[in-house]
Computed example of a mutant assay.
Amino acid sequence: MSARPPRILAIAGSDSSGGAGIQADIKTITMLGGYAMTAITAITAQNTRGVRAVEALSPDLIAAQMDACMEDIGVDAVKIGMLGSADIAEVVADRLEDLPCPIVFDPVMIATSGSVLADAATIEVFEWLMDLATLTTPNVPELEALGGAGKMAERSIAYLAKGGDADGPMVEDRLVRPSREDRVWSEARIVTKHTHGTGCTLSSAIATHLARGLTLEDAVAKSRQFVRAALMSAPGLGFGNGPLGHQAVR
């Protein structure tokens, strides 16, 4: 019998076009040798050009999905993405309150296409999730919406400030941890419009590597390289912000 793969529970919305959300999570976890489970929070009708419709599932159904996975298969790490409402965010946080495994929280607020995916009430509950998370992974506008670096420092949490949305030829990602020196990665920007699902992919990869027992710094480093390889392997699908090439990464 082969060694048991790390069991990753992805809690996020479904992307009908397959580039982001639960679909990107499953592809990433699978390509990195993990076993992917899901608790779907919302169904979206979207493609590379934008989100056309969103329908959140009931908090009870989302809790039931989580319970079904945790009680039977078990969980070695959790990735949280799009939540859809404050009630959903609260039930997810409640279910994860005492779960003894790494939790990676991607505070999804705006899709790559610019569509808003979290309202003000939902963002307020993010503070509870950030307190529970091993790592929170905001991009530039998400970090600003969460109060900026100063506010995050007051919370004494670990977070990865992603720089892909900033301007310039270099992309800088900064890992900030309480009472630790920041770890900064700076690499040349990969110039492409096919960036749909980069945040989902990165957070799922980090969760998978943490489940394998890697340190936070090593998990982030390996996950960044996975995302960069997937960007380089993008299949060029769609007329807007196309998906990454998860399946081409080896």
Rank of each mutant, 00 (worst) to 15 (best):
V108L: 07
M66K: 06
E90L: 14
A63S: 13
G74E: 01
A120W: 12
A121C: 11
A120Q: 14
V51P: 09
P100F: 11
D87P: 05
I22D: 10
I40F: 11
T112N: 10
I123F: 06
Q23D: 10
I43S: 11
P59I: 01
L57C: 05
M70C: 13
M82V: 05
A118W: 01
R49E: 14
G114L: 12
V92R: 03
M70G: 10
D94Y: 14
D94S: 15
P100C: 11
Q23V: 12
V92D: 01
V54N: 04
D72F: 09
S85F: 03
D72R: 08
D76S: 01
I40C: 14
I123S: 00
T41C: 05
I80N: 00
G34E: 02
Q65S: 07
M82E: 04
P59G: 00
L61C: 14
L117C: 00
S58V: 01
D106L: 08
A68D: 04
P102R: 08
G50T: 05
A56R: 12
T122P: 06
S58Q: 12
I88M: 06
Q46T: 09
A24I: 07
E55A: 13
K79I: 02
S115N: 13
I22M: 13
V92I: 09
E124I: 10
S85R: 01
A93V: 00
L96M: 09
V51T: 05
G50E: 06
V104Y: 03
L99F: 09
A42V: 07
F126P: 03
M37Y: 07
L57K: 04
A111E: 08
D76F: 05
L61E: 10
S58A: 13
S85A: 03
A121M: 12
A121F: 10
T112I: 12
T44D: 08
I88H: 00
P107D: 02
A53S: 13
V91C: 10
D106N: 11
V92N: 03
A42G: 02
A68L: 11
P102M: 08
D60G: 10
M37G: 02
I123C: 05
I123P: 03
V91P: 03
A121I: 09
A53E: 14
T28K: 00
D106Y: 09
A118R: 00
P100A: 07
D76W: 07
M70W: 14
M70F: 14
T48V: 01
A77S: 06
T38F: 08
M109Y: 03
A93I: 03
A53T: 11
V108F: 09
M66C: 10
A89N: 02
V51K: 08
G33Y: 07
A63V: 11
A77T: 01
A111Q: 07
Q46W: 11
D25Y: 11
V104N: 01
R52I: 14
R49A: 12
Q65D: 09
I22F: 13
I80A: 00
M37A: 12
A77Q: 01
D87T: 07
D60M: 12
D76Y: 06
C69N: 13
R49C: 14
I62H: 01
T122H: 03
